[in-house]
Amino acid sequence: MSIMSLQNVKVCFESQVILKSINLEIKRGEAFVIIGPSGQGKTTLLKTLSGLVTPQNGKVFIEQKEWLTLSFKEQLPVLRKMGILFQKNALFDSFTCIENIAFPLQELGTLTEREIEKKAEYFLDAVGMAHARDLFPDEISGGMQKRLGIARALALDPEIIFYDDPTAGLDPITAKKIIDLIIFLKNQQDSTIVAVTNDMNRAYQLADRIGMVIDGGLLMTGTPEETRNHPDLRVQQFIHGNLTGPLNAMT
């Protein structure tokens, strides 16, 4: 059953066409990873799926509802189930790490202080940052800020989670741990994941299905195995990062 789907979606910014005629279905409970060259529509596709970008043409269905026809009030309950982690995560500078995770939980108002603290500690520990509990975001490194952002997004138990390059700037050991954590929590909570990444190792590790965006179009979708063995030369060139091939390495 599809949780999100795009039909003939076209997105333009000013006169520039970013996405042209995309058809895509995301199934409930799957991990879909978007790959592709920089500046050719990966992030825009992610944002269109999450309803943040309004397409010029085509239809967007989220949870079987035609998204663009809904009022904001009707969208709200669905939006509450979504978690989005941006490339640059906006942490609260004046809160310590633990408070950063606890804050959105307090806003929900459904948990007691004790539960919130326990939950926040659990996620802080899960991203390997228990030692940084009482530090402020500007006292920790960029990689640690990234991990904190992930912990904060995950702590809300969203049903659909969007990740924009969740492991950029992380060393391979931490990156692997983060993806393991993301998969573990996904299985535990039966959530759906849509992620953009530039790291093929992480894509293979996370994805049930991979989609490659080139030049505003969806070139292919398939399992990691299918992607590795895909006959198209462009796919092969991209996943191996070769300089020679049909894709122009200049862009």
Binding site: S38, D171, H240, L247, A249
Partner: peptide, 30 residues
């Protein structure tokens, strides 16, 4: 934050530039 192809391009650049400029390079990388 760069895709695999651009990553390869930049890595080659680092190598070429170090040679061409005969410079010492220190790279922090993952």
């Amino acid at each position: 934050g760069l895709d695999p192809i651009t990553t390869t391009v930049i890595n080659h650049l680092i190598q070429d530039l170090s040679k061409q400029l005969k410079s010492t390079s220190i790279v922090v990388s993952h």
